[in-house]
């Protein structure tokens, strides 16, 4: 980047510069406009649904379009449950693969493995969903059936539901967490490792003492990225979660997330209030994602060790 102190002498050139910079500025400002318009448009589209339901839109637990009752709370819960479950599954696995690639594997192994993990990120959501329906779902169904038979819990083993959705989500977000973690772990200066070794630490202790604390801000950033993806993920979740309107009451239960309910109900939304309620859920998702984004940037700044540039 550069700030020029040369003043163009010819007026033609300086007007060319001015024109160009206005064009570029305009394009860049479009970005601001776009963000603003997201809020404005979703608000205008969703206002009818919001005002018609009032506060019960967020607090009520019934979604019953046939009777004109619209409450998004079950889906907020559904999003929360699947996202958290996915993170719990994904974080240790992603970190394990990141540590394997950076600290344990010899060079000839770490490159291909790294590439393979990144490939997971390239698979589109709808393909995950297709695989989810025809491969994962039957497997989870069998597992649930086994649990049901062995323990007699009063849950219906169908395969569809939050369990499959969470597992699928976990697989989808692992590469994001892993890839960022890999990058920040690589950036930890070697003398941090050596300092830990020189104190008489085992390899794992070096990772635990010298590497992970140093890289924690970046790893957290990767986790947030994964969280954002998990919250926004639509197709794959819709295809396996069962699309029930209630809050999931047990691990085998079906449910919906904010994104899956919009996707699955949209084609059935006939009256304007229905459509508007769906748009309002979209507005909720927008607000959530911006808040998560902001909070994460604050936390990352707090977690970054003093003097470290990530």
């Amino acid at each position: 980047m550069t700030s020029t102190t040369l003043k163009p002498k010819r007026s033609r050139a300086s007007s060319g510069d001015a024109l160009f910079s206005y064009v570029i500025l305009g394009l860049a400002l479009l970005i601001l406009l776009v963000v603003l318009s997201y809020f404005v448009l979703l608000l205008s589209g969703g206002i009818q649904g919001l005002t018609a339901s009032g506060i019960s839109f967020i607090t009520g637990t019934t979604w019953d379009p046939a009777n004109g009752v619209y409450s998004a709370f079950p889906f907020i819960v559904g999003t929360f449950i699947t996202a958290v479950a996915a993170l719990i599954l994904a974080i240790p696995l992603a970190l394990a693969s990141a540590l394997f690639i950076t600290e344990y594997a010899p060079r000839w192994l770490s490159e291909p493995v790294g590439y393979l993990v990144e490939l997971l990120a390239a698979i589109p959501s709808v393909v995950y969903g297709l695989w989810g329906i025809f491969v994962l779902l039957p497997l989870v169904g069998k597992f649930q059936l086994w649990v049901y038979q062995k323990t007699g819990v009063p849950w219906t083993p169908s395969g569809y539901g939050v369990m499959t959705a969470s597992i699928l989500l976990a697989i989808m977000i692992i590469p994001f967490i892993a890839s960022i973690s890999r990058d920040v772990i690589r950036l930890v200066p070697n003398d941090q490792r050596e300092a830990a070794y020189a104190l008489g630490a085992t390899k794992w202790e070096v990772i635990r003492t010298g590497i992970l604390p140093y890289a924690r801000a970046g790893i957290f950033g990767g986790i947030i990225l994964g969280l954002g993806r998990a919250i926004g993920e639509t197709l794959a979740v819709t295809m396996v979660i069962g699309n029930a309107y209630k809050i999931p009451s047990n691990p085998f239960a079906q449910g919906s997330t904010m994104s899956s309910i919009i996707a699955s109900q949209f084609s059935e939304a006939t009256d304007p209030r229905f459509v508007s309620s769906l748009v309002a859920i979209g507005l909720l998702m927008l607000v959530f994602s911006v808040v998560v984004n902001y909070v994460s940037s604050v936390v990352i700044r707090k977690l970054t060790p003093a003097g470290v540039r990530l």
Binding site: I31, L32, V34, V35, S37, Y38, L41, L42, S44, G45, G228, I231, G232, E233, T234, S259, I262, A263, L278, V279, G282, M285, L286, S289, V290, V292, N293, S297
Partner: peptide
Amino acid sequence: MSDVLTGIPAIVVGLVVYVM
């Protein structure tokens, strides 16, 4: 703002264009 945009789910963008 560009960073904020990266975090916005695709379905939300679809809804925005739908309304617009």
